[in-house]
């Protein structure tokens, strides 16, 4: 949720002239090699790659649509349908599992009212738990929100992250809604321990969990290069 965080446009359609431009960036390499970078470009811009884009890529790169489609559907990062504006990933790999992720999943499911792989109906948040390790087990349990890693997440911190999303996404709408109207908290349930679900209450939680980029910077400032110095000098 920092400045670099990547939010997906809530687009429903892909601009094919933009697809052409993305393909044009890779004219100097073989079409096969270009395929993945092109998909990545489209996925990153729109949050999905649909059938129309698939045909356009095939046409532009002079590959058969079957080949393009077969590659596209193999990799989970490429989505066939638009996802939410925010992507919340929960790592459930073996490293994170041992440090306790089942409770975190429960928090998300209860508060967002969506299960694994689902998106809130207003298209704001997609939740995806993963059995695949995210490759950062030193910070487990690990959550990735909009491309930022959040480490050592416990239930309180998970609640905090959701509060922050809540604040970002629904506060503006709340100001339009009449005070106390039900429209205020249509989607995101309040944290169980945050008591009264008033806007002020949620907005007060300005102290958000630091992302790992910030965490690292802080640790470096405090104690030299690394959170844990791997110098093997205890032997």
């Amino acid at each position: 949720m920092s400045d670099q965080a990547h939010h997906y446009a809530v687009a429903r359609e892909i601009d094919l002239s933009r697809v052409r431009e993305i393909c044009d960036q890779y004219r100097n390499i073989s079409p096969e090699e270009a395929l993945m970078p092109v998909f990545q470009g489209i996925q990153e811009e729109y949050g999905f790659v649909n059938e129309a884009a698939c045909y356009e890529v095939a046409h532009q790169l002079n590959l058969s649509p079957t080949q393009v489609y077969s590659s596209l559907t193999f990799y989970w990062i490429y989505k066939w349908r638009p996802g939410g504006k925010h992507r919340l990933f929960l790592c459930e790999g073996s490293g994170c599992y041992t440090t306790g992720t089942t409770r975190l999943r429960r928090v998300v499911e209860e508060r967002l009212g969506i299960g694994a792989g689902e998106t809130t109906f207003d298209g704001k948040i997609t939740f995806q738990p993963f059995s695949t390790c995210m490759g950062a087990c030193e910070w487990s349990p690990l959550v990735e929100l909009d491309g930022e890693f959040y480490g050592f997440v416990d239930e309180a911190r998970m609640n905090q992250l959701i509060d922050e999303l809540n604040r970002q996404e629904y506060d503006a709408a709340d100001q339009l809604a009449a005070p106390g109207s039900d429209a205020q908290y249509a989607l995101v349930a309040p944290a169980p321990n945050s008591g009264d679900a008033s806007t002020a209450n949620v907005a007060q939680i300005s102290e958000r969990a630091p992302s790992l980029t910030e965490y690292e910077a802080e640790q470096t400032a405090q104690s030299g290069p690394q959170p844990n110095s791997g110098n093997a000098d205890t032997r």
Binding site: G95, T98, N228, G230
Partner: peptide, 22 residues
């Protein structure tokens, strides 16, 4: 790469030949 139920998870470069206890 040491992770799981450990006080200081992280990457540790050792001169080799370490046992699990070490």
């Amino acid at each position: 790469s040491i992770s799981g139920h450990i006080e200081r998870p992280g990457n540790y470069e050792t001169p080799g030949g370490y046992t699990m206890n070490q």
